[in-house]
């Protein structure tokens, strides 16, 4: 994906410059921007390291676990098929608190574990309602301190790089709410498509669904009997 974007930008840029006569600007800019990108990375490094350092303290002192306990009662309403005492639920809460603290490196493995636990329950290649809700939560950014952006603003001479923090909070909360709302509405519309609901629908009260393997064995038996006869 990125290869296409990369090539498209360079090729289209060249074509455009050839038509508009900006070629001298372009050739100058190629050299400048390569140099400038390294300057930018170096000027970013200090603040990036400082934040990772403080967030590591937060992680080691168990602040992440504290946060995840705080979320338990709230998240219960979003995930309807997950047991509150299951591993999947623990991983989900931890993933969200790691995201909030901006610990992306810690959040991803926790999120992958959560997906694995949820998959164990559904055993299908279709996403369950809960998986959709969880992934949507991860596609919306929920971060208390937008460090990366603030670092960039700082290196481009912003006087107060954190003055957008309230706007970021409001915007991300609204965006997340809308995303979850859409997810929930679609869940309601297509609820028979969720593999978990399908399983539930199959198991009628007073009648047990026999596993496939047993019936298959029986079929083989029948077949053998037929051959004998």
């Amino acid at each position: 994906m990125l290869s296409y974007i990369f090539c498209a930008m360079i090729v289209l840029g060249f074509i455009c410059a050839a038509f508009t006569g900006n070629m001298s600007d372009l050739s100058q800019n190629i050299l400048d921007s390569a140099q400038e990108s390294v300057t930018l990375l170096i000027s970013m490094s200090g603040m990036l390291c400082m934040w990772s350092g403080f967030m590591q303290i937060a992680k080691e002192s168990g602040l992440m676990q504290k946060l995840s306990k705080l979320f338990r009662p709230i998240l219960k309403h979003l995930f309807k098929d997950i047991d509150e005492n299951s591993d999947a639920y623990d991983y989900i809460c931890m993933n969200i608190s790691a995201n909030l603290l901006g610990l992306g490196n810690a959040a991803t493995p926790l999120g992958l574990n959560a997906m694995r636990e949820m998959k164990k329950k559904s055993l299908s290649d279709t996403a369950t309602d809960d998986m959709v809700v969880f992934v949507v939560m991860n596609t919306a950014s929920i971060q208390l301190i937008p460090t990366m952006v603030a670092t960039l603003r700082r290196s481009y001479g912003s006087k107060s790089p954190f003055d957008t923090i309230f706007c970021v909070w409001i915007t991300s909360v609204i965006a997340l709410a809308v995303g979850l709302f859409v997810a929930k509405v679609f869940c309601k519309i297509g609820s028979n498509k969720s593999p978990y609901n399908r399983q539930k629908a199959k198991v009628k009260p007073g009648r047990q669904v026999k596993p496939f393997i047993v019936t298959h064995k029986k079929r083989v038996k029948c077949f053998k009997n037929q051959i004998k006869q």
Partner: peptide
């Protein structure tokens, strides 16, 4: 790449 895209006017 963005620099190329930007300075060419695209």
């Amino acid at each position: 790449a963005v620099g190329v895209f930007k300075s060419s006017g695209a």
